[in-house]
């Protein structure tokens, strides 16, 4: 799909924005989305530098939440991230308890992490994989690949990620 604004680049950001009760969907490329955000035309519930998929799970709620406290502003605007394949929002996922398509899991990865941990007590798969994914992992075990990622994270001083990886490795080792 092509970006509806510049009509040149591929659309990578899919959002539904509601302004005073009127909803409109956007399919934009990263650059146009950034520009529209800076111009105030689009609210994105994300810290831009953190990337589109690092959205806060409370992002979509916070507009309504605070307006409830401080009185409604003249214009009430909320926006929703949508799955690029099936156009489901996280709200759809949460209401039905089910994903709209396989891509929903990538789109809403951050929002889902806590839910997955409460269902399974875990957030990482360690079982069978389709043949082509096994090849992609280069025949490495998951533990080996995690240890490499940890070494890389420490080297880059990405300590938050390193701590998460360390916990995952411990969990895997305890389960093995």
């Amino acid at each position: 799909m092509i970006c509806e604004k510049c009509k040149k680049r591929d659309a990578t950001v899919f959002y539904e924005q509601t302004v005073n009760g009127k909803s409109r969907s956007y399919s934009l490329c990263g650059e146009c989305a950034k520009e529209m955000k800076q111009n105030g035309e689009l609210i994105l519930n994300t810290d831009w530098d953190g990337g589109f998929f690092g959205a806060s799970p409370f992002g979509a709620l916070s507009d309504n939440f605070f307006s409830g406290f401080f009185g409604l502003p003249e214009t009430v605007r909320t926006s929703k991230k949508l799955c690029p394949l099936c156009h489901a929002s996280f709200e759809d996922f949460r209401t039905s308890g089910k994903a709209g398509c396989p891509s929903c899991y990538e789109t809403f990865a951050a929002e889902l992490e806590a839910t997955l941990r409460s269902i399974h007590g875990n957030t990482r798969h360690i079982g069978k994989a389709p043949a082509k994914h096994k090849k992609k992992q280069g025949g490495k075990s998951q533990l080996e690949s995690l240890r490499e990622q940890l070494a890389q994270a420490i080297k880059q001083e990405d300590f938050e990620n390193a701590a998460r990886l360390r916990d995952e490795i411990r969990e895997l080792e305890a389960g093995a």
Partner: peptide
Amino acid sequence: YSDTLGYLTHCPTNLGT
């Protein structure tokens, strides 16, 4: 399939294996 979540299913209770 996703390397992190395993086989992707309609319901998240079936993810993984």
